[in-house]
Amino acid sequence: MADQQHRGGTRLGRRNDPDRRDRIIDACLDVISRHGVSGTTHRKVAAQADVPLGAMTYYFDGMDELLREAFTRFATGVSDVFARRMEAASDAQEARQAVVTLILEDVFGDDRALVLSHELYTLAAREPAYRALTTAWMARSRDALERHFDPETARMLDALIEGLSIHRALDDQARDPREVEIAVERITRA
């Protein structure tokens, strides 16, 4: 009976709000970005999504399933931006600039993305299911980088993106954006 009622994230007869499941996932990311994973509850997510609290268990078996879906959506979205930037680069110099833009604008320029990344990394350090998400995310990033750089350089650039983003986010002193350009240049010219 449950299988007949639940198809593709919506139950039969619930056609009046076909985007509800997606809204819940997006709301979960918003709540995580403000309260962290440990402060994320069904009640907060339901309020953010403007859905009844009962909708949470209607669409998700529990908080872990919701978190996995939310972080999958987040990681895929970041990977898509990453891939588009790298695909738009027509040569190595444009690819270097795309990496700089990824660090300064897409990662460091978005506090929400930065917080969500760190929350996901923390979960991945403890939970294999989340580690699988980050591993797939890193693989997609390296694939995008390998459009312009050899695999070893792509791996170093991927680590640089993560490392510089963390350092720039947590440093109390304002950093010169030129240091990102210098670091990318040094790794890609080696």
Rank of each mutant, 00 (worst) to 15 (best):
R168Q: 10
A144M: 06
R96N: 12
A154E: 06
R131L: 11
L157R: 01
I187W: 03
R140D: 15
M56G: 05
L157K: 02
D19G: 07
Y58P: 00
L114I: 06
V45M: 03
A169N: 05
A139Q: 15
E179K: 00
L53A: 10
E87T: 15
I161M: 07
P52L: 02
P52G: 12
E119N: 04
T72G: 07
Q48G: 02
V99A: 02
L29M: 09
E185D: 13
T10V: 13
W137L: 08
R168K: 11
R189T: 15
A55N: 14
I103Y: 01
F60C: 06
R7K: 14
R14Y: 12
L157G: 02
D19E: 13
Y130H: 04
G109K: 03
H6K: 08
S33R: 05
S79N: 15
Q48I: 05
E65G: 11
S79M: 01
T10C: 12
A113S: 12
V37N: 02
M56N: 09
H148N: 05
G8M: 08
D61C: 04
A144Q: 09
A159M: 12
A49F: 04
D30G: 12
P177H: 10
F60A: 04
D172H: 10
I32T: 03
D50I: 05
V45F: 05
T72Q: 08
E127M: 11
H118T: 12
D22F: 03
A113D: 10
G62H: 09
P18N: 05
A75Y: 00
A169Q: 02
A136G: 14
H42T: 10
L170N: 09
R43Q: 14
R155H: 11
L116C: 04
T40I: 02
A89L: 06
R23T: 08
N16W: 06
E146K: 14
K44P: 11
A132I: 07
A92S: 08
Q93P: 00
A136D: 15
R96V: 10
A70D: 01
T153S: 03
A159C: 06
A92V: 15
D91F: 03
F149H: 01
A124K: 06
E87R: 13
I32S: 02
D80M: 05
G9C: 07
E146L: 01
A89K: 03
E119V: 10
F82E: 00
V37P: 01
A46G: 08
A129Y: 04
I32H: 01
T41V: 02
R73A: 12
S141G: 14
S38R: 13
F60V: 09
P52D: 14
V115Q: 07
R14S: 11
A183C: 09
P128S: 06
E69S: 14
Q48E: 15
H42G: 15
